[in-house]
């Protein structure tokens, strides 16, 4: 379910700016780390969640305003390299300024595990599920039912036409970065009690979120939902039935099979361009 959030984070930025944000995983990591630091100063969970998401959104806005929109000669390749640079920069700064250890975070709910028809699992999974569902719902509501959301969709459909209608495209792109940072940080902070926070936790989440995007079709939010679920379920099934050390492989295997068979994903992405 967490991959759904990462995948939507990718989509938000991709559909408005045509940038694949390689730093998406780092947004997750930042969210987790900031929450960890705030919790250390015994700030309540709700407030620390809010603060960490807002801080990460600000970081995302900063990235767009100062780095991406100032890039000279911006083509696809240079922007990809750019976001890779941003991603390792964030990781490096966290590794030096916080540390490189994995930190546990206590569960949000007062009880640690839940039993449901014979299966016992961590109570944090409920929190993750609920957060993801609420966020996905809110995001859909925003896109379909508010003026701002509709403007954003217009930008993603046709940037030039939208700007002719008087939409400030740059502003919309910045908003996309902010939303993506917010979703990413919240995802990172809620998954933290299960996965621990560590400076390099972002890579794997980013990769699997990308895999979820590919499976569902890049830029397609319904696809992101389904793709994220498929990747998540396949991963836990393989951890249970095959071996947990190979569960990372499954996501990529699915991704590569989808790329071979149907590169546009299950819910045809609107802009996979065949070369």
């Amino acid at each position: 379910m967490i991959y759904v959030l990462v995948a939507i984070g990718f989509n938000v930025i991709y559909s408005t700016t045509k940038i694949v944000n390689f730093a998406q995983g780092e947004f997750l990591m930042l969210g987790g780390i900031i929450e960890f630091i705030l919790l250390k100063y015994s700030i309540p969970i709700g407030i620390s969640l809010l603060i960490s998401s807002i801080v990460v959104s600000i970081v995302a806005i900063f990235i767009h305003k100062f780095l991406i929109s100032n890039t000279k000669d911006a083509n696809e390749l240079s922007l990809v390299i750019m976001t890779i640079g941003i991603s390792i920069l964030i990781k490096g700064v966290i590794a030096v300024s916080v540390d490189k250890d994995a930190h546990p975070i206590k569960h949000f709910l007062p009880f640690k595990s839940v039993s449901l028809s014979g299966m016992t699992f961590s109570s944090q999974y409920i929190v993750v599920m609920l957060t993801a569902l609420i966020l996905v719902f809110l995001f859909y509501f925003y896109l379909k039912n508010t003026l701002n959301g509709k403007i954003m969709q217009a930008v993603s459909m046709n940037t030039l036409a939208a700007s002719l209608f008087g939409v400030n495209v740059n502003m919309e792109q910045m908003k996309a970065f902010a939303i993506s940072g917010f979703i990413g940080a919240l995802a990172g902070a809620t998954i933290a009690p299960i996965s621990f926070v560590q400076y390099d936790m972002g890579v794997m989440f980013g990769l699997k979120g990308f895999a979820a995007c590919v499976v569902g079709g890049f830029g397609n939010n319904t696809g992101a939902l389904v793709g994220g679920l498929i990747i998540g379920i396949a991963e836990s099934l393989s951890a249970g039935y095959i071996s947990s050390s190979y569960k990372d492989l499954v996501a990529f295997l699915i991704m590569i099979i989808v790329l071979f068979v149907k590169p546009s994903g299950l819910f045809s992405s609107k802009d996979v361009e065949r070369v």
């Binding site: 780095l67 100032n70 890039t71 000279k72 240079s78 922007l79 390299i81 750019m82 890779i84 640079g85 941003i86 991603s87 390792i88 920069l89 964030i90 990781k91 490096g92 700064v93 590794a95 030096v96």
Partner: peptide, 13 residues
Amino acid sequence: PIANGLLLILAMM
């Protein structure tokens, strides 16, 4: 890593 990241960003900009 920090140096590498900065180098990439600056080079692209």
